[in-house]
Simulated assay, not measured.
Amino acid sequence: MGKFLLVVIVFAALVYAVFWLIERHRGGAPARGRRTPPKPPRTLAPDDDEDFLRDLNRRQRKRDDDRPNNE
């Protein structure tokens, strides 16, 4: 009876460990109830960044305004 109980306990521990690892891998709740802050959205390329594009347009307009008209 003792060996059977030991096998059941070890099996339960393994099943618990597998489900715990799966949950962590899927991004479930972190251990001990701690919350991780959400990651800010990542800019993939300069043309995805609105601030970058706005600054480019501002620079281009300034360059165009500073250039003398030879027309």
Rank of each mutant, 00 (worst) to 15 (best):
48 D>F: 13
66 D>C: 09
66 D>H: 10
42 R>K: 15
27 G>D: 02
28 G>L: 02
35 R>S: 12
65 D>T: 07
20 W>Q: 08
57 N>Y: 06
64 D>R: 14
2 G>Q: 12
25 H>V: 07
70 N>K: 12
3 K>G: 01
17 A>V: 07
50 E>G: 03
13 A>E: 05
37 P>S: 03
20 W>I: 01
21 L>I: 04
1 M>P: 03
12 A>W: 01
3 K>D: 11
30 P>E: 09
8 V>H: 01
57 N>T: 06
38 P>C: 05
37 P>D: 03
70 N>M: 11
68 P>R: 13
9 I>W: 02
58 R>G: 01
9 I>S: 09
33 G>Y: 06
38 P>N: 05
31 A>H: 05
25 H>M: 11
22 I>F: 13
35 R>L: 14
37 P>W: 03
69 N>V: 06
39 K>P: 00
53 L>W: 04
31 A>L: 12
51 D>V: 11
67 R>P: 00
23 E>T: 03
40 P>W: 01
39 K>G: 02
22 I>R: 06
67 R>N: 10
49 D>M: 09
16 Y>E: 01
22 I>S: 08
24 R>T: 05
53 L>S: 08
36 T>R: 08
57 N>F: 09
46 P>A: 05
23 E>F: 07
62 K>F: 03
6 L>W: 04
57 N>D: 12
68 P>N: 10
57 N>C: 04
4 F>V: 05
54 R>Q: 11
28 G>E: 01
12 A>M: 09
62 K>W: 05
16 Y>C: 03
65 D>A: 15
13 A>G: 14
11 F>P: 00
43 T>F: 13
20 W>H: 09
69 N>H: 06
16 Y>T: 05
34 R>L: 13
31 A>M: 08
37 P>E: 06
70 N>P: 00
28 G>A: 03
45 A>D: 13
47 D>E: 15
51 D>S: 14
47 D>V: 07
49 D>Y: 07
48 D>W: 10
57 N>L: 10
62 K>M: 05
56 L>E: 09
28 G>V: 01
66 D>S: 13
14 L>R: 01
10 V>R: 03
11 F>S: 14
19 F>R: 01
9 I>D: 02
27 G>C: 03
24 R>W: 08
5 L>M: 12
66 D>Q: 14
58 R>Q: 08
67 R>A: 14
52 F>P: 00
24 R>C: 04
5 L>R: 09
41 P>M: 06
29 A>I: 00
14 L>E: 00
46 P>F: 04
48 D>N: 15
28 G>I: 01
15 V>T: 11
51 D>N: 15
4 F>H: 05
68 P>I: 11
67 R>W: 12
65 D>H: 07
25 H>C: 04
56 L>K: 12
68 P>F: 12
7 V>P: 00
64 D>W: 06
58 R>P: 00
